[in-house]
Amino acid sequence: MSDTHDFRPIILAGGSGTRFWPRSRRARAKQVLALDGERSMIQRTLDRLAPLASPARCWVVTNDLLSDTICGQLDVVPEDQVVCEPAARNTAPAAGLAAFLIERTAPDAVLGMFPADHVIGDETAFLATIERAIAIAASGDNMVVLGVKPTRPETGYGYIETGAPYEGTAVRVRRFTEKPNLERAEEFVAAGNYHWNSGIFIWSAQTLANAIREHLPDTAPMLEEIAAAYGTPQFREVFARLYPQCENISIDYAVLEPRSAKGERYSRLYCLPASFGWNDLGSWAALYEHQLEQLNGGDARANVTESNGSLPIEASGNYVYSPKKYVALIGVKDLVVVETDDALLITTRHHSQDVGKVVKELAAQGRTELI
């Protein structure tokens, strides 16, 4: 890409990945697992960004439980640019802190916010879309979100309603809607001008920092104080004291929804439709569908097994992870079976979004060794 834009990817890797229990645990969450190949999800995220920014320009926001693993997997990223949240505070404080840190020395730098656990099919198209987003973000007080054309009425994603064309393929954003019910999701898909919110955002450090100052006036001063302490002996103490006091809110609710309320002509919010094969692998069912697509073009009757051999007899649509054992499937349909050394999950693909409830119940029971 052109050297005219100073691009800094920010990889958000603080999630616990509870819907991928029992493989995903607090100290080994989804983003550091190799769910889709030999490289972990966060390694693949960094790999695909390499043509746009060197690892020395990348930042990672994570937590103390994952930091050692992430520093080991991303040993090309400077260790002091792996920032460990002392408390989980959702994406607005995480993204805002990155903006305040970088604004101090490079206010015009363009930041890209990338969740650490996405799968991208066409990386060439992905890079072209990001380059376009960088150009829009660098040209003013603009915010760009990548929107994915919906293929089904999915209730697990947020939606972006788009309006007038802007430049090229970009369109103006009318509003954001978080995770609708099935009836509304069906309406959105039928309308044709809605996109899934990919969670990938592009904006300058100054644009985001100013938006945090405007929309989170109580949190912004604390993030600025933390950023001011970065690189000093007081940093960890200031971070640990102030960050847990920051508002626990997503960047969508904190900044994007209030901006969209200004109206599409004035919000300077833009959507770039993404056509590069996006999947956020939000559940075992999503992983099954993704691997099915890779294996045989998506025959929903097929089984996906990661095992030491398998034998299906009148069985279809099952996902099984049991890497050390031979698996026989007889007369079962649409199951998810995941085995680790200390736990066994048995559910259906339909209920795989509910796996996080297991982690909550285990926590309530004090079974911390299993989470």
Rank of each mutant, 00 (worst) to 15 (best):
residue 280 D to I: 03
residue 18 T to R: 09
residue 70 I to C: 15
residue 222 M to Y: 11
residue 66 L to C: 12
residue 112 G to C: 11
residue 84 C to M: 05
residue 244 P to S: 07
residue 351 H to G: 03
residue 363 A to Q: 13
residue 83 V to P: 09
residue 193 N to W: 12
residue 128 A to Y: 04
residue 344 L to K: 01
residue 13 A to C: 15
residue 316 S to I: 08
residue 293 E to D: 14
residue 234 Q to W: 02
residue 177 T to Q: 15
residue 119 V to C: 05
residue 340 T to K: 05
residue 30 K to E: 09
residue 170 A to M: 07
residue 141 D to R: 11
residue 269 L to N: 00
residue 237 E to S: 13
residue 77 V to P: 10
residue 137 A to C: 13
residue 365 Q to K: 10
residue 111 L to S: 04
residue 324 K to F: 14
residue 300 A to R: 10
residue 261 A to I: 00
residue 260 S to N: 02
residue 277 G to M: 01
residue 114 F to K: 09
residue 343 A to H: 01
residue 301 R to S: 15
residue 123 E to G: 12
residue 344 L to W: 00
residue 210 N to L: 15
residue 369 E to Q: 14
residue 93 P to Y: 06
residue 68 D to P: 04
residue 265 R to G: 07
residue 255 V to G: 06
residue 364 A to F: 13
residue 137 A to H: 12
residue 341 D to A: 03
residue 87 A to P: 08
residue 104 R to I: 08
residue 283 S to T: 10
residue 245 Q to K: 12
residue 151 T to Q: 11
residue 240 A to W: 05
residue 235 F to I: 05
residue 45 T to L: 04
residue 52 L to N: 00
residue 202 I to C: 14
residue 176 F to A: 01
residue 157 Y to A: 10
residue 92 A to F: 09
residue 105 T to D: 15
residue 150 P to N: 11
residue 152 R to L: 08
residue 140 G to P: 08
residue 221 P to R: 15
residue 365 Q to I: 00
residue 38 E to D: 15
residue 170 A to H: 08
residue 350 H to D: 09
residue 331 G to R: 05
residue 362 L to E: 08
residue 209 A to F: 08
residue 192 G to L: 08
residue 143 M to R: 02
residue 92 A to R: 09
residue 96 G to R: 06
residue 59 W to Y: 15
residue 338 V to C: 13
residue 99 A to C: 11
residue 218 D to V: 14
residue 59 W to R: 09
residue 74 L to Y: 09
residue 222 M to R: 07
residue 362 L to R: 15
residue 309 G to A: 02
residue 234 Q to R: 12
residue 13 A to H: 06
residue 229 A to R: 01
residue 293 E to K: 01
residue 216 L to P: 03
residue 207 T to C: 15
residue 160 I to P: 06
residue 117 D to E: 13
residue 76 V to W: 11
residue 255 V to W: 06
residue 306 E to C: 13
residue 322 S to M: 05
residue 39 R to W: 13
residue 308 N to E: 07
residue 266 Y to D: 12
residue 336 V to M: 00
residue 184 R to S: 03
residue 217 P to G: 02
residue 231 G to W: 02
residue 335 L to S: 10
residue 22 P to H: 06
residue 194 Y to K: 12
residue 308 N to K: 14
residue 221 P to M: 15
residue 21 W to D: 00
residue 55 P to M: 00
residue 95 A to E: 14
residue 8 R to F: 11
residue 104 R to Q: 14
residue 318 N to E: 09
residue 196 W to C: 07
residue 310 S to G: 10
residue 267 S to C: 06
residue 75 D to W: 03
residue 205 A to N: 08
residue 264 E to H: 14
residue 126 F to S: 00
residue 245 Q to D: 06
residue 23 R to A: 04
residue 302 A to E: 09
residue 55 P to N: 04
residue 350 H to F: 02
residue 87 A to K: 06
residue 367 R to T: 02
residue 223 L to A: 02
residue 140 G to L: 10
residue 164 A to M: 10
residue 71 C to G: 11
residue 181 N to H: 15
residue 268 R to E: 06
residue 149 K to T: 06
residue 327 V to K: 03
residue 141 D to F: 00
residue 309 G to S: 06
residue 4 T to S: 02
residue 287 L to W: 10
